[in-house]
Design a protein around this nucleic acid. Structure first.
Lengths: 238, 238
DNA sequence: TGACGGCGTCTGGTATATCAAATACTTTAT
DNA sequence: ATAAAGTATTTGATATACCAGACGCCGTCA
């Protein structure tokens, strides 16, 4: 351990040091890299489930198979991968039913988050949400779907943050990775983008008025709308 | 591969065989064993976080460290363990704040499940829930807290099942393992057990009447009651 | 006497070797 | 020519070897 040698008899100088982050294990790095790759890989445009090769990934990332296997174990539990013994490891494609279940769970969590936000969030935090929303609406032409998608996600994540629940935040982040791919495909259809902005505005108003029941209901209905839409229009899944 | 030798020129006899369950990998077995041990270990009665030793577990279970490490990776992600590099692996004790977050998330999921149940569940399934509840109430004296606790959990799991959502079911099961320990400590206090039974009865009635909003609200309030109770009375945590 | 530091031990992290099953490919008998 | 059988190769699953950091014991020196 590299300690600073103090002068004899003097008190040790209390240098302002942050603890080193020793948590960058290969496993965590591999986990992050794989998760990002999976998130960006547009699974639903390919026809077949992609197989991952442990040894190939091992060579690509320059580490042994062990940390990669551990990372894969994590991703499998999160539902991104499926390993079939002595067959291979595959990126899973969610069925329509599973995606609807994810959206329903998202609706459950975010509506509860909105409820908690009306109680827990500070006025400043809610005002910041309003600012973010207004800035986006005035600066971004409605045609820019990509930016809208990102702002959309940021909006939903902001609501979770207002609730103060780390647990729900972490859970929803994972759901979003799955749902995001579908959202990309659906947001351009019909007038969903425009309707979505109206919904968001109403949600913000409910939060500002600390109307617990209304905020919860609006958020829930907004999410369940997407579930119904997927149910009707996404038969290309499965 | 042990194939059945068929008589020359005859069609192979299609014996009715279920595929062997080749999914009992050491990893999964270790995972199950550890999870059960952790669930049963009453963490909150001990003062300090318990440390697990990979090599010792390896000897106890008679397998190498590899599958055990993989199982531990899973349990760590589920929030049961925390590994500190070169220090050890510890069974985590949740803080009061974390437990409240878990109960809030549980409330979010189960109230949505109740909502979905009023739409999706069959009359028979709801009737079965009613039967289960009535049988318990008439056969079990109110003093038997242990049995009540089990029946209580069964009741909540049943609601999730009625919703038809596998995802929420799986998520709540994990939350329950954490919450269960607290519930054991709180259910005997005050008149919570008696009030709980009344709540359950009202929930069943709402389900029977397919009253979506009421069922959701009752389930939510029932769960959030526990959160408030823990917030007030569980300062022994942390 | 007490604090510092050497040194052995224990820990989880990582790399690598080994294994059995699945598959692809080749051979061979009819 | 074809299909069954045999063989080679690839894969994930498991076991084992080794590493470096953390910790504690204990002797030394001021």
């Amino acid at each position: 351990m590299a300690t600073i040698p103090a002068g004899a008899g003097t008190a040790a100088m209390p240098l302002a040091l942050r603890p080193l982050s020793a948590n960058v294990s290969f496993r965590d790095q591999a986990y992050a890299a794989l998760k990002q790759a999976i998130t960006e890989a547009d699974i639903y445009s390919h026809p077949h489930e992609l197989r991952l090769d442990e040894r190939q990934l091992s060579r690509s990332l320059g580490v042994s198979r062990t940390p990669i296997r551990e990372a894969m174990t994590l991703l499998e539990q999160e539902g991104f991968l499926r390993t079939v013994p002595r067959r291979g490891i595959f990126i899973v494609r969610k069925t329509k039913r599973q995606i609807i279940e994810m959206i329903e769970m998202w609706a459950a969590l975010e509506s509860m988050a909105a409820r908690l936000a009306t109680v827990n969030a500070s006025d400043e935090d809610i005002a910041a949400l309003r600012t973010m929303f207004d800035e986006f609406r005035t600066s971004t032409p409605a045609e820019h779907i990509d930016e809208y998608s990102e702002a959309n996600i940021a909006f939903h994540q902001a609501i979770i943050r207002l609730s103060g629940s780390h647990l729900m935040g972490k859970t929803i982040d994972n759901l979003f990775i799955h749902v995001r791919a579908i959202r990309r495909l659906t947001i351009s259809q019909s007038d969903r983008a425009a309707r979505s902005i109206v919904d968001h505005m109403r949600i913000i108003e409910a939060l500002e008025r600390r109307d617990t029941e209304l905020a919860e209901r609006l958020v829930r209905e907004h999410s369940l709308d997407l579930a119904a839409f997927v149910d009707k229009n996404c038969d290309f899944l499965d």
